[in-house]
Simulated assay, not measured.
Amino acid sequence: MTEWVEMLVTMADGPKQPVHGVVVPYRNTDEPWRFSYGSYGEEPVLPRLRHDGVHLYRWGRRTRIESMDGDPLFVSDGETAWDFTSSSERPRCTELRSVQFLGPGRELVITRPVNHWVRNHHARPTGPVTDVDFLGRRCWSVELAPRESRAMPRLSVRLVVDAASGAVLGQHSGDGVDGAVYMEVAVGSPIDPALFTWNGPVVTDAESRAQAGRGVPRRSDGAMQWFRENINAEPMHVPVLMDFTPRMVDLSDDESGAFSAPLGPSRESGDSPGWLIRRPRSQEPWRVKTHGFQVAWSTREFDWACAIYRGTLDAAAVAILQHQLHPGDPIVGAPQLVFGGSDGP
């Protein structure tokens, strides 16, 4: 049986091979679709899938949506996004992280940042990963629990992921009301990388704000733009060596081996990197008192979870930590963490 961790690693950075096909969204209700968004004052970029279908190209974090007639609608190289909804010759341009997808099918179109999946307040599987055949391809299917939201009720979501490429080929809401699927797909066929970028004139965030009467951005915004243009426009991620040696351990049950421990320097000093907790392995949701648990996993006998207050544990760091905690004891799954309980710190 495929584990959720294996499926997540395969899909986390987007399709590993070029993927192209026709995607059609569906919505089996007349109820209005509600959403909310926020911006500094510029016109938001809200791509969507047309009800009659679109041509969708994916490769890694890159995306291209075309109408069924071949007109570009939305393009992204994985960092910058261009929206052609208002103009086919001067698209609206913004950072991909500012894009807010409208309607069903987001998981097919935009690859989420890795920390979306590793932080405890985002989706976790409600059951096992199952093998399915979709469009003649070996795929995985999993249902993810809704993330907590006080603003509006959330539904679970079921994803269908191509096992070979990691491409999301289907997304369905837990109540079956809406979703989006490939009607036909080609995996591995060559795609010109130039399809995922735009070198012509654009409408920038600043121009969009000015057109909306927002005016000139604050000096700090201009300084950040200068930094992007003159120093570095890419995300800056630097691995940092941190001391995770616990200074104290709360052995809540010495017979079962459950414990919690603040990592690194004492919490009173304000420099503690985070927490490590463990319990006997269980299928029950693990209720923890605080947000921030970025990674959780299970060995044959125990469930483990680790939280850090600054930064993100990448796959290499997690592997090092796991080796130091239980060398030779393999990972067999992951517990479901739930905020607001009493089992952890």
Rank of each mutant, 00 (worst) to 15 (best):
T2P: 05
M7D: 00
M7T: 02
T10F: 11
A12R: 14
K16N: 12
K16S: 15
Q17K: 14
P25A: 02
P25I: 01
Y26C: 03
Y26G: 04
R27N: 04
N28R: 15
N28S: 12
N28L: 15
N28F: 13
E31K: 15
R34T: 08
F35A: 06
G38K: 13
S39C: 12
G41E: 14
G41A: 13
R48Q: 09
R48S: 11
L56Y: 09
L56G: 01
G60A: 11
R61A: 15
T63W: 13
R64I: 00
R64Y: 08
E66D: 15
E66L: 14
P72F: 10
T80L: 10
D83V: 02
S87A: 10
E89I: 10
R92Q: 13
R92A: 09
S98W: 09
Q100P: 00
Q100V: 07
G103Q: 02
G103M: 02
R106D: 09
E107P: 00
N115H: 11
W117D: 04
W117G: 02
W117A: 05
H121P: 01
H122G: 01
A123E: 11
A123R: 11
V129Q: 00
V132G: 00
V132N: 00
V132K: 01
F134M: 10
R137F: 04
S141E: 12
L144H: 12
R147H: 12
A151Q: 07
R158M: 02
L159Q: 03
L159F: 05
L159E: 05
A163S: 15
A163W: 03
G166Y: 10
V168N: 02
G174T: 05
D175G: 04
G176E: 13
V177P: 07
G179E: 13
A180H: 08
S189T: 07
S189G: 08
P190T: 03
P190I: 06
P193H: 11
P193K: 11
A194L: 09
F196N: 09
T197M: 08
P201S: 11
V202P: 15
A210R: 14
A212Y: 06
R214S: 06
V216F: 13
P217L: 09
R218D: 07
G222D: 06
Q225E: 13
R228C: 01
E229H: 07
P235G: 07
M236I: 08
P239H: 08
L241Q: 10
P246N: 06
V249M: 14
L251V: 04
D253Y: 11
D253Q: 08
E255Y: 14
A258Q: 07
F259G: 03
S260C: 06
P262E: 09
L263I: 00
P265K: 07
E268T: 03
D271S: 10
G274S: 12
G274A: 12
L276Q: 13
I277A: 13
Q283C: 06
W286F: 00
V288I: 07
T290S: 12
H291D: 04
V295D: 09
V295W: 13
V295I: 02
E301K: 10
R310W: 12
A315W: 14
A315D: 06
I320G: 04
L321P: 01
Q324A: 07
P327T: 01
G328V: 01
V332E: 04
P335C: 02
P335H: 05
P335R: 03
Q336E: 05
S342F: 15
D343Q: 12
G344E: 08
